[in-house]
Amino acid sequence: MTEKTVLQVNDLKKYFDKPKLTKAVDGISFSVKQGQIVGVLGPNGAGKTTTIQMLLGVSTPTSGTISYFGKNFTGKETDIKQMINFSSAYANLPFRMTVWENLDIYARIYAVKNRKERIKHLLDSFGVANLAKKRMIQLSAGQKTRVMLAKSFLNWPKIILLDEPTASLDPEIADQVRKFLLNQQKSYQVTILITSHNMKEVEELCDNIIFLHHGKILASGSAKQLLKKFNMGKLKLEDLFLKITRGEYENI
């Protein structure tokens, strides 16, 4: 695995002044190397989704910088967005259109070559090939999630941002998705930044974990390093997450 930095975030802040001043993200800095899978964890309101939205360019930071592949995101957004993609529980695809039509539109936007083959391959990979002609409105939550994941891999992204990608999947399908992600990481060194509330999943997938709390990075490192740092003994990452959520590490 090379040590090339794919994503560099420096002192990133996002403040909202209405209805009252809220520091959603408060000066976070981190970097992600090529081929890494990095988990962003934290309780609700920790700033995970706001961070991802700024990394996607759909929310403007109050201050700080984001660089992809050594280039400042501001001013190079269109070129950089061609190389990234995402899937989020907060976004959806037009519900009147079919699965195939939706993927076709995004394949056109990303200028994917041989888009029919690419769409077919991804639908097969996520086990939703039989849904190609179904309208989005006819799909279950789990099926929609898999279609969104297929969309997020359309353009062979160099880095992919996943906001709770397996939240609505049953354990069997969630396992298949994790295997697919690991396979993509191995086969073409895709870098993945993932938020999840499933600690087992994070332990299984992530090389590195960033713990966010009240918009700040509370700790970062591998699962083992984090458990050691917080003297968790034989306890699991989930126990650490619960302790953080309950405010036991407020003053760190």
Binding site: G57, V58, T78, K81, Y90, A91, L93, I109, Y110, K151
Partner: peptide, 8 residues
Amino acid sequence: VVNLFASP
């Protein structure tokens, strides 16, 4: 909207 404008 996010899908569209997170794309190029």
